[in-house]
Design a protein around this nucleic acid. Structure first.
Length: 315
DNA sequence: AAGCTTTGCAACCGCTATAGT
DNA sequence: AACTATAGCGGTTGCAAAGCT
């Protein structure tokens, strides 16, 4: 059985074969597995090749923070990108970039004490830590929902948050579901000294997740059986994690969910539209290439958009 | 220009899950 | 129930191209 790189002739042969017989049968002189992979990762007509956009990069990083190395799950939220391509891009580009910024690409947490405010990048790293908190909260909340709602049904394909967590995060066998992430979440809140700013930062990180293009897709709807008016709600209406709401209430004396959402959406909107066009790849290519300073600027700008918004719990 | 090193990515490998017999 | 084939996944490897000395 032949191995190694595919020749153009073989590609053509494979394409012709698929055009004639579909992609259910992988019988050429190559092994079936190799043919299938070549098709799914390279020849398929609906594959987008070439440089990743800023939006795609953000999405990958955010999803990696949520899912870890679950490349197929990540790829499901990046239209026309394959898991293999995303995996390669992470390993060769994004991982290095995060490392250079002092972020552990595995845990998405700062690598040193810079969070305490002594380093020039303290704010940046602090944001990343908050991001991680949001991640843990999302995991906990959605996993909890999946547990509490056995009759959970979906009217449409589940979007980002739900699919990521409900379908992909496996409960730890030795612990009750969610206990570990809830504990981590609790620690992340209790260990910080500035309680009054927590809700705003939390909302900002949540908003960053909401701001991804993927969440704006037509399929970005959630459905819950006990939703009041309709069992399908838009992603912009996804409620904040309960503990976030509680923390906000504790800080502000108000517990209404309605107080929170405008700030989330404002932050999301600011990220989407403010200052730069994420669709214009050429415009910003230079920003994210080569220069460490430019990279820091890129990240700081992005993250500060979220942090500069007012605290919902404060006057 | 030549040789060496690094980078990027397609392809492979090994494993698990699932479907069919 | 046991076996086989296939699909899917994530980690790793190998090699061509680019970069560097």
């Amino acid at each position: 059985m032949k191995k190694g790189p595919w020749t153009p002739e073989e590609d053509q042969k494979l394409i012709s074969f698929i055009q004639q017989y579909g992609h259910g049968s992988w019988r050429l002189r190559r092994c079936g597995k190799s043919c299938r992979l070549r098709w799914t990762n390279y020849l398929r007509p609906d594959i987008k090749r070439g440089k990743f956009s800023l939006q795609e990069e953000q999405t990958i990083i955010q999803l990696h923070a949520l899912l870890g190395n679950r490349w197929s799950a990540i790829a499901a939220h990046l239209p026309k990108r394959t898991d293999n391509e995303i995996k390669n891009y992470w390993n060769t580009h994004l991982k290095k970039r995060l490392t250079r910024l002092g972020i552990d690409p595995t845990t998405h947490k700062p690598k040193n004490d810079a969070v305490n405010g002594n380093s020039p990048h303290a704010a940046n790293l602090s944001h990343m830590a908050q991001w991680e908190s949001a991640r843990l909260e999302a995991e906990a909340r959605l996993a909890k929902e999946s547990k509490l709602q056995p009759g959970f049904t979906q009217a449409q394909p589940l979007p980002l948050m739900t699919r990521l967590v409900l379908n992909k995060i496996t409960p730890q066998p030795s612990l009750p579901p969610c206990l570990d992430v809830l504990k981590a979440w609790q620690n992340s809140w209790s260990s910080s000294s500035s309680s009054s700013s927590k809700p705003a930062k939390m909302h900002s990180m949540y908003a960053m997740m909401l701001a991804t293009d993927d969440l704006e897709s037509p399929t970005s709807t959630l459905s819950f059986p006990n939703s009041s008016n309709s069992n399908t709600i838009s992603i912009s209406q996804v409620p904040l994690p309960n503990s976030t709401i509680t923390a906000t209430a504790a800080a502000s004396g108000s517990g209404a969910d309605d107080d929170i959402e405008p700030y989330i959406m404002a932050a999301a909107e600011a990220l989407r539209s403010g200052g730069r066009s994420y669709d214009d790849d050429d415009k910003f290519e230079g920003l994210i290439e080569n220069s460490e300073e430019e990279e820091k600027h890129y990240w700081n700008t992005l993250l500060n958009w979220a942090n500069d918004l007012p605290s919902p719990g404060l006057p």
